[in-house]
Simulated assay, not measured.
Amino acid sequence: MSDPSTASIVSTPGAHPIDSAAPATAGQPQSNDKPRGLLGDAWRDLRRKPLFWISATLILIFLLMAAFPSLFAPGGDPANGALSRSLNKPGADGWFGYDVQGRDVYARVIYGARASIQVAVLSVLGTLLIGGTMGIISGYRGGWLDALLSRIADVFFGLPFVLGAIVILTTFNGSGAGNSKNKIMGLVTASLIVLSWPVVMRLMRSSVLATREADYIVAARALGAGTGRIILKHLLPNCLAPLLVYGTIMVGSFIGAEATLSFLGVGLKSPVVSWGIMISDGQNFVRVAPGLVFFPAAFLVTAVLSFVMLGESVREALDPKLR
């Protein structure tokens, strides 16, 4: 005989048996919720981090400063000055004072962001493109090609960064006479790319080696997918996380590298306006006019720290072990 209580539950109109068809209670996830991917989880974690919003806001300001300097320094002239205002102190007419040639330091700091950030961003894009491509080829193909590319990377790893950049720029730039602004910036960008791509190659190669034998890669290969499809559709999306982190941090590092080379006199040169050139020009007057060094150095340090902080926030969001 069947239990009456059970029979009543089954036969009573409108009653819902306890099974998977019952509606979910409040607070429980619905079955039609779409699962988030790696980037979705990372964005959810990033939105909760104050450090991310602070660094992203500062970076946005610097990017706007580089793209539209006239918005921050309306009417300012970074190139021309009057000797009558030489080494004038900061005041209402010049917030950061004037340099030895009577040029507005505030306007030069604002306009100096363009060259520094432009060189850094172009260098990072070139480094990621060249190093990432060689890392994918080396890690996916393996064999003698992997050995050859790895040994080439080892050769560049053996070059000291600053010394190598000085040698490259001194050889191809010479004294700088007759070189246009675009040529000088191109040489600095190329030198940073040549000396930095092996790091990106190693990162991409290690990611590809850890991913190329995954089940979904083996299944795609068994189904007849070509090399290009496997790399673009499967390998690349799953190997980009470390490159995004390193690329973000590398922008800040390249801003500092460009300033270092310009300070040493082998990077950008006048009439280009950059923070490194301003620090180099103001070092001889630091006792009588410390603002000539302090203001561009403050902007330089803030920009570098902003990109480093953003990179650290992205790294923590993309790494499941750090959540």
Rank of each mutant, 00 (worst) to 15 (best):
S274F: 07
L310D: 05
A210Q: 09
R108Y: 10
A259Q: 01
S2A: 15
W144I: 15
V245E: 00
T25Q: 14
D41L: 08
I193W: 00
S86G: 13
S180T: 14
L87M: 11
S262Y: 02
A67P: 03
I18R: 14
G132S: 12
K233F: 08
I54H: 05
A257M: 01
Q101N: 13
L125G: 02
P290K: 07
S270N: 08
S262D: 11
G174N: 06
A73I: 06
A220H: 04
V155E: 06
G143E: 01
P90I: 00
Q30P: 09
A214N: 14
F72P: 01
T189I: 14
K89V: 14
R202I: 13
M1K: 07
A67T: 08
A257L: 09
S280A: 15
R287E: 12
R141W: 05
G164P: 05
F157M: 11
G131D: 01
S262H: 00
A220D: 13
K89H: 14
S180D: 06
T189E: 04
A190L: 14
R85N: 04
R48T: 15
T302C: 13
S306Q: 09
F285M: 08
K269D: 15
T248A: 03
A303P: 03
G143D: 02
L209W: 02
F157K: 06
I249M: 06
T211V: 11
M65Q: 15
S70D: 10
T25Y: 13
S180M: 03
L318Q: 02
R36K: 04
L125Q: 05
D19H: 12
V245S: 02
P35S: 07
T12P: 05
M250G: 00
M185R: 11
I230G: 02
L122S: 08
P23W: 01
F52T: 06
G174Y: 04
V121D: 04
I152W: 00
